[in-house]
Design a protein around this nucleic acid. Structure first.
Lengths: 347, 347
DNA sequence: TTGTAAGCGTTATCAA
DNA sequence: TTGATAACGCTTACAA
């Protein structure tokens, strides 16, 4: 039994060992392991017995080399510490596992350079495809997305017309928030979390949807009510809220471009003695778990995270299986359904 | 130039192509790529030029097969949706990247069966080692941890005396919380989040540290002030808090066995009209970001997450590099330093 | 239905 | 300092 000892003392049987023990050829073992149809059941049983006896496990490096694939897909997100991306990764890993794929999570920090790097990195040779959630890229970078491997983007069409992508209803969701706040009688709404103007980012789309709704209602938005926060976190949301407060412009509502921003802002409002929602209504976007348990609980937009994860994996796996050319003529777009969740923070 | 087209239309040069173009042997290309010392710099330059011209990228499956390693380590955690584990994974991925390793995150759901599965899964053949944070395993499962590949556990010694592990100061941290609450004059402290009695889980250790401190102070703990929550989340924390409230036992403080439990509990206190910290002081454990921005901000124990991640990766990589036998005679134990962070929720 | 044998693209051994 | 050449363990035509 020609077992082999690797440098860490790991003992492992190969298909040859199994074949020898079962008295068949390597090809037959391979057939059994891969559930190929035409294997006599007596043979199969003998092989399975040998596998069990030797504790044989597939050597994936060998399989991958031979097949030219790896069975892994990469998921590139800004940061796992951001709850939205943690919850998204959770969902993607689960969806991929269902289809037999393993996920490799990459963190870009949301920094353009590192996002570009992810696209061209040698690591891409370790995975069969990529699910990519860029937030630092700009329209000028669109061409860099036309890679020669299967890719699915999480984000907006504008950035990449020829690449499959799964979008969330950023503009419509934000519009729904605005309409909700207006319906509650709020007219002086601050916006927390700005964005890089150069891109059709989630930030710009949400802002646009929000402003459009205000326009249509004949309500003017005072730019002094916008708080800057390039990176989106509780900390930056708090800072942006302070910025607006310190300008002395009045406001009766706050729209955080996402939930962590809104939570950071809410924290500052509390420190400054403002009551939510009595003095100021607050709403966010993303429906992260913290928002449900915040005090007060946070009104937000549930962007269809689970659906996004599932759809992205489906689109990617389809292409992997289909052998479809990587950069097709027109990228398919799927937009997830959103839902406005009204909670305490907006009364 | 003997390029090859894979089924997804991906074009890739091999070392052979590079060798041919540079007029050297494959071995020389390999030497250059791997920074082997004895390569004439003229040769090296020619090879690098060829690499650049062809856009050559390493085929990792081939390298892995040949080397018998994969350059990947697995990290098994309960759920990425739990902020503590999301932040931990972030740190592990970063620490591993610094040392040239890629991380594969596995989710166990904290379920014993899936944790056992992770240990024996064929997936282990895809990674060189495992960093494992079990929460469902019991002492009876200790033997299952004696695997034949390098492993580092995040957790307590009791479960696995012969395996390297990185522990947090669960008991001491909880003791610090208790002492803090006692110093604030609280005597009737509820505990939220119970644990499987059969294991030296974080839950049991934290509880023990907490109770010891009470004992030493001559304060008796009424079991009616314990709220059950096997899975630790905001939702279960809220439910456990309701359970205690509904029993009608009075209390002037709450210790959530971790932060999400405490946040869930705090939410319920608010709903029931109890003021934090005036009526009830609340403390947690883990120092997740939400706690800093909660209202009121949450007193907690910072368990040394970054240090834990770094140490775990270091221990594992050392063993991978050192070719040390997998299950040594005595597992090393490293305990991270903790810090009590006093914030608003305890006045 | 099963076997033979030629790859897959590296690394490692041993000469030169 | 470099080059042949044989592994590494699996898949896959092609035969039988």
């Amino acid at each position: 039994m020609d077992r082999r000892i690797t440098e860490v003392g790991r003992v492992s049987a190969t298909m040859r060992d199994v074949a020898r023990l079962a008295g068949v050829s390597v090809k037959t073992v391979s057939n059994v392991v891969n559930d190929f149809p035409h294997v006599k059941s007596a043979t199969r049983d003998r092989v399975l017995a040998a596998i069990a006896e030797l504790g044989y496990q597939m050597n994936f490096s060998a399989r991958n080399l031979s097949r030219g694939t790896t069975g892994m897909i990469a998921l590139a997100v800004p940061e796992l510490s951001l709850p939205y991306f943690a919850e998204l990764s959770d969902a993607v890993i689960a969806a991929a596992a269902e289809r037999g794929y393993t996920v490799l999570v990459e963190q870009t920090g949301g920094v353009r350079e590192r996002e570009l790097e992810v696209l061209a990195s040698e690591r891409r040779r370790m995975t069969d495809g990529l699910i990519f959630s860029p937030i630092g890229l700009r329209p000028a970078d669109a061409a860099r997305l036309e890679v020669d491997y299967p890719i699915v983007l999480l984000g907006e069409r504008a950035l990449h017309s020829s690449v499959h992508h799964v979008a969330m209803a950023n503009a419509d969701g934000a519009r729904a928030v605005a309409e909700h706040l207006l319906a509650r009688g709020r007219r002086r709404i601050a916006v927390i979390g700005s964005f890089d103007e150069r891109g059709p980012s989630a930030g710009s789309l949400r802002t646009r949807g929000f402003l459009d709704a205000l326009d249509e209602a004949g309500v003017r938005h005072d730019p002094a009510r916008t708080g800057e926060a390039l990176r989106w976190s509780r900390t930056t949301g708090a800072a942006a809220m302070r910025q607006v407060l310190d300008r002395g412009v009045g406001f009766d509502a706050v729209f955080g471009l996402n939930d962590v921003l809104a939570l950071g802002a809410m924290r500052v409002l509390h420190e400054r003695g403002l009551r939510v929602p009595e003095d100021v209504a607050v709403a966010g976007f993303d429906d992260i778990e913290d928002g449900r348990f915040a005090r007060p609980s946070l009104t937000t937009v549930q962007p269809g995270r689970a659906q996004i994860a599932r759809t992205a994996v489906e689109l990617l796996v389809e292409r992997l299986a289909g052998g479809e050319p990587a950069a097709g003529p027109g990228g398919e777009e799927r937009v997830a359904q959103f839902e406005l969740l009204v909670r305490e923070s907006t009364g």
